[in-house]
Every structure is written in C-alpha cells, then in structure tokens.
Design a protein around this nucleic acid. Structure first.
Lengths: 173, 173
DNA sequence: TGGCTTTGTTATTGATCAATCACTATCTTT
DNA sequence: AAAGATAGTGATTGATCAATAACAAAGCCA
C-alpha cells in the first residue's frame, strides 16, 4: 500500500507526537528510541520503519512544531485587523506555549544542536516566522516594522525561558 | 595540602574550561568525560577527583559562565554614566558573546535541562542578572525600568539565538 | 487456496560511557 | 631516609542504546 495510506500516516504522526513528548521531557540526546516507542505503544525497532535514524525523527518532530506556529500565525494574520495584529499574535503565541509546551521546549533544545540538518531546520523555521511577521507588520502599516519584528521575536524567546524555568517575573513590565 | 592550594585551584579551573568547550561543541549529554579530560590534558578518571559526577561538572561550568556575565555587568554599572548605561551593557554583552561564545551556548543548553540542580542554577543566574540590571536602570532614572529590563533580557536571548544559528538578520532593526 | 504485501515483533549486537578500583610516582616534612 | 600525603594513571565494568536481522501474523486479491 502506498505511503499515503491512512494507517501509515497516523502511525507516523503518533510517533512524532510521542517523540516530541519524550524529547522535551528528558532531552533529545538522553531520550531513547525505546522510550519513544513505549509512548507510542509500539515496539522499539518499529520506530525505524518510519524514521531510519533518531536524527530524522528529531527532524520530523521539529517540522511538526514549526508547522504549528507558522499555521497559527498565518491564520491570525489573515483574520485580524491591523490595530490588533501584534497583540493577537502575542496572545496566540502564549496560547501555543500553554497548549503545546513540549513543542516549544523541543525548539529551545534544538537551538543549540550542532548537527547541520537540525541547524538548517531551525533556520528555516525562524526565517519563515520572521518574514511572515515582518510582512504582516508592514502590511498593517506598523511604524519601524523591522524593529517591532525583532522585539516580537525577542519577547517570544524570553517567554520561552520564563516558562521553561518557571520564572514568570522575567516577563514583568 | 589544602584545597586552596594553587595547583588544585588551577586544575579545577582548567577542567571547567575544558568542559565548557566540549559541552558547548557537542552538547552536554553527548559529551563524554573522556573528551573533557583530553581537552584538559589529564586522564579521564582524574576528572572525578575534582567533580564526583558529570552533573557537578556541568554545575561548575554554569557557575563560571554566569560569573563572567555578572561580574562584567557589575563593572559596567559601576563605571558608566546613567545616559550610556543601557547601550554600554548591550555592548558588553555582545563582547562576551564574541569572546566567550561557548559559555553562552552552554547557558542556552541549560535552559532546557530538567535536572533540578541545573534549573536552580539557571534561575539564580537569570534572577541575579535581572535584579542587577533593574536596580541599575532605576538608579539611573530610566523610565519604565521594569519594561526596559525585560526588553534588555529579551534582546539578549535573541542575540544568543542569532549567533548560535548564524542568523544575524534576526537582530535587524 | 496460496502467494504477496503490509504491519508488526523478539532477539541480538557492537559501541559507548560514567564511574570505580587498584596502583604508581612525586613531593613534603621531620 | 623514611613515612605520609598529594597528584596522577591504566584497566575494567556494568549499564545503556541505536540499529539490524530474522521471523510471524494478518489482510488482500487473483
């Protein structure tokens, strides 16, 4: 049966979900493929039928987590009036943080992973988000759009750290 | 001979330096104590005479890297006139980034490590930096000091990511 | 019914690594 | 010079893990 078969697609997505959880909880390098398999209710070797190396599994997990941010932001940008744009994007990101904490933790980990494929994936993610937000700010007639985009990203990263370390005071203003 | 002996102190510092490099280059969990030892020109078991576990070695490395930031900032705050304060702190941080890249990479890694001792060390570091900067801004009569402190920290984190991923465009304004 | 594909498992392996042990050599002090 | 402390090493181990190989069951279709 072709790769686009439903069962296969679901399996792959289930494994990615399990991987995001386990990687976020114990760290990519310390996490074992056996832990991922257990979380996905399959045997350890079966993981390798879908992802031939652990690194490819990480790539799949990263792709899923960037997808969520990008698609959420795209929707907000399409549907929000210019004057509410920045506030709504911030709200949306905080929502993702709350609902999909593990995906953000995984992205944070991947910021310092030196394998070139991972760096490339992270660069793509940041680039796409930045360009989307910048274009939206410009479209909305925001003044100093580039600086506002930079500050938006910067606050997002601080928010990540505040959540990861349970230090809400870092975001106080 | 006492622990405050010169040779011992130097050895310990040498090991910490080696650890910072190796941990930053390959990641804490993937890095081996043998690699650290080799970088420090000693045998692998000898590392454990100074740090009885790998985690204690990471704690030592983190402490050293936070020390540098805190002491540098303290000096800037003592010696800089109020109107130049923020700009000089930013300059100083960029300088640390350039000169001690590995220490910053290590801090970034540690943001997502779940061991409680590591989290505590990271919280202490962030707390001390934040409080120092906030007090300095208030002392300098900066308006909305809390918000300015938050933005200062946020830009610092974005700077980290920009350097780690070689994406200078992230800081464009 | 019997062959082919898909889905899945058990068993295994070769490598890797933190940590311990047992030991040697080099000072220091009297 | 001899005893005790300090500095340091080689050898080993028990555990862990990514990845492979070999096999089995279930569905499908001609």
């Amino acid at each position: 049966m072709a790769k686009s078969n439903f069962t296969s697609v679901n399996r792959k997505a289930e494994i990615v979900s399990a991987a995001i959880e386990v990687f976020a909880e114990v760290g990519y390098y310390r996490a074992t493929t056996a832990q991922v398999a257990q979380r996905a209710n399959i045997s350890q070797p079966y993981v390798f039928k879908f992802f031939s190396t652990k690194e490819l599994l990480l790539l799949g997990a990263l792709e899923a987590s960037w997808s969520r941010v990008i698609q959420s932001f795209r929707q907000v940008i399409e549907q929000t009036s210019p004057d509410l744009l920045e506030a709504t994007l911030i709200q949306e990101y905080e929502n993702i943080q709350a609902m999909h904490h593990n995906e953000i933790l995984l992205q944070m980990q991947a910021q310092t992973i030196q394998e070139e494929a991972i760096r490339q994936s992270m660069r793509n993610g940041f680039k796409e988000v930045r360009e989307m937000v910048l274009a939206a700010f410009q479209e909305a007639g925001v003044d100093k759009a580039e600086e506002r985009t930079m500050l938006f990203l910067a606050r997002g990263l601080l928010c990540n750290v505040a959540v990861a370390l349970s230090m809400p005071e870092l975001m106080k203003r």
